[in-house]
Design a protein around this nucleic acid. Structure first.
Lengths: 176, 176
DNA sequence: TATTGTTATACTCTATAACTATA
DNA sequence: TATAGTTATAGAGTATAACAATA
């Protein structure tokens, strides 16, 4: 945020580059989380036969108060309606969730975890926690954890506040 | 959520749960980065027709000193050999990289960026930087950025130092 | 024997568009 | 007209195993 240099190569000169600290932080953040994601996926697949997306959906239902609508469940986990329908279909087929019509809104579907679903989360969680602890928290001090949580919460909230670029926006039809 | 309870359902009682701060930090980290990844993918796809993986490969070659072997290029970006061959095939078909036999090691392939590849990186970078800045760095102070970079560097290095669970390890053949 | 890279194949996942039904 | 959800379908990506060639 000090002085801005013009970009070196081609491109819009209206966009100042990131300073080196920012660029490095961005790349290492993406790299570290990518590695973490990969290991976590391995653990979940090996011990529970589920993906991280499915784990998130189950965990959200298992730790929440009650059933969620499909839309409520999708929030932040899946970026298209059909994607959630697909995942919910798999989970339902495996007997981990149920889908029932909502009494309040006849358009909506209420999703609930089954006992099997809860059991699966419980079965997978210890190993999951172990992986996360040994990979993510092992090299961090308590202060680091708090600060990381604080920082990423701000980032998350900031992104959530932004109008999503392509979430609910319907595409305008070009003239046929 | 104050005192730690023993795991309710099935599972290993030898694995203590994460404390709430750790669990929250883990989830918000994954969520925020997932949102960021998604937006970044959109930008790269829209402005350059490439995925983030492809962008990483090109950027690594464009900012590095010279050609890399396939194995060197894969490092941390792709988790299977065939995955890299696939991506390299796409990039080569698009004229963004070239693959040539290595003079040093006749088994190896040396990958280089073409001028088109560099041009693409240059063309895409301003928008990329803009997205990253507005989504990730906007809500952060300079100290936050440094600390985040420091923390994630430690995490990355720690994960790299761990013996990878399934990277180069050959599967042992079960008795036939 | 170990390593580098490719191929074939199967599978998972995602997203777009069209559709139904309800608010 | 807008929203909730499903379906069909197509495309991108990944991983495993088998393979060839070189170290």
């Amino acid at each position: 945020m000090t002085d801005s240099q013009p970009p070196a190569g081609a491109g819009a000169e209206s966009v100042p580059p990131l300073d080196p600290a920012q660029l490095g932080t961005y790349f290492v953040l993406m790299e570290a989380v990518s590695l973490l994601q990969h290991q976590v996926e391995q653990q979940l697949r090996a011990e529970g036969g589920i993906s991280y997306v499915q784990f998130q959906l189950l965990a959200r239902l298992a730790h929440g108060d009650g059933p969620l609508t499909m839309t409520g469940l999708a929030d932040g986990v899946v970026y298209s309606r059909s994607g959630l329908t697909y995942q919910a279909g798999l989970l339902e087929k495996s007997g981990l969730i149920t889908r029932d019509p909502s009494p309040d809104d006849d358009r909506a579907t209420l999703v609930s975890v089954t006992d099997d679903g809860r059991a699966l989360v419980d079965r997978v969680l210890p190993g999951h926690v172990q992986v996360v602890r040994s990979l993510l928290f092992d090299p961090l001090a308590g202060d680091d954890v708090r600060h990381l949580g604080d920082v990423m919460t701000r980032v998350r909230d900031h992104m959530r506040a932004q109008p999503p670029r392509s979430a609910a926006s319907r595409r305008r039809r070009p003239a046929p």
